[in-house]
Amino acid sequence: MENTFPAYVVRKEQDGEVKAAIEQLRKEDLPNGDVTLQVQYSSVNYKDGLATIEKGGVVREYPIVPGIDLAGTVEESVSGRFAPGDRVISTGYEPGVSHFGGYSRYARLRSEWLVPLPPGLSEKEAMAIGTAGFTAALSVDALVQAGVTPEMGKILVTGATGGVGSMAVAILAKLGYEVTASTGKKDKQEQLLRDLGASHIISREEADMPAKGALGKQLWAGVVDPVGGSALAERLKQIQYGGVVAVSGLTGGTAFESTVLPFILRGIQLRGIDSVYCPMERRERLWKLLGGEWKPDRALELGIQEITWDQLPQTLGAILQGEAVGRTVVNTMEASI
């Protein structure tokens, strides 16, 4: 292990201002944990952007190293689960929020936060999937477990050019579902969405168009919704009998107003998706699928941008402004500036 190594550290000044910069850390600067690993890749998520701003609302204690996702190789372990040389993934739990995360060449974590890297994935591919792809997989799994099959009809994916949305489109298309992708970037990203496997592309305005009355036409067998907000109420009105809405995000807002009618007259389900504290049994099962029959090959081939340390500030700023498309991974092995 190197004597010093680069990390992207966020600190809060005495005047309350939050500042982030690349620093050189030492082994003893790392927090407690029973597994120390060399990080090879991390990824860029909306939550990581929030961790770098004063009113982000996600960091519990400063200083913090953001990066809620990481993949690497175990260097030291006093855990019975992992040994030196094991290749592992961490998504969710505390890293990047209350525990130093993936924007560091080395990390020390608790073994119960780690998942073995599936044989079908490289570290880079795992981070291209990351929390966004894992959330997409949880959303697809909610549809599958509820009995929504490709034969039942179209699946709507909102925010389809974002991390969760693009991964959901690729996974659903691979599993044989007919996907309608909704995006606010239709003119610019229509070809990308078709390449990911979407059969139909509609604008955000079309997807959010209010339905007349308490119930609308039954348009969707299911919805993967990482956007949320008031338009969620309109989507609930348009779900087919027995359909499912899997909601995982709030970029469109946290509140919506609905009635019980879609639930009691059409028997639909509204499933909340949490990737942070998802039980380990389900977590490991879905990561194995993501390395196998659910592997989002099209998304991994088309929508992945790799950046280095010096590009982190600009990239984090872009994701906060809603300008991100697809997935971005951070190569932590590159030399720091």
Rank of each mutant, 00 (worst) to 15 (best):
E112I: 07
G229T: 11
V44S: 01
S90L: 10
M1A: 13
V223A: 02
I304Q: 04
G102C: 12
E151D: 14
Y277N: 15
G176W: 11
V329M: 05
E28S: 13
Q38T: 00
V148Q: 02
R283C: 06
L175D: 07
E205G: 00
F82V: 05
F5I: 02
E13H: 14
S79F: 05
G292C: 03
G176L: 03
I273D: 03
G163E: 09
G317F: 08
V164F: 09
E112K: 11
R271K: 14
T73V: 05
A83H: 12
L196R: 13
G72E: 03
L172K: 01
L143F: 07
G67L: 03
E234Q: 14
D187I: 13
E306G: 05
G33A: 00
A160F: 05
L215R: 05
L286Q: 01
K212S: 14
Y8A: 02
P95R: 10
Q240W: 14
S258W: 06
G153W: 03
P63L: 04
I239F: 10
I22P: 13
Y41M: 10
D297A: 14
V115H: 11
P313R: 07
T149E: 15
V330F: 09
V78R: 12
K174A: 15
R108W: 11
L192Y: 04
V115I: 08
I89F: 00
T259W: 13
V97S: 09
I273C: 00
G216H: 00
A71F: 04
K47Q: 06
R105G: 11
L265I: 15
I64T: 10
G292A: 10
D34Y: 08
P63C: 08
Q238T: 10
T149A: 13
V276N: 15
V10S: 07
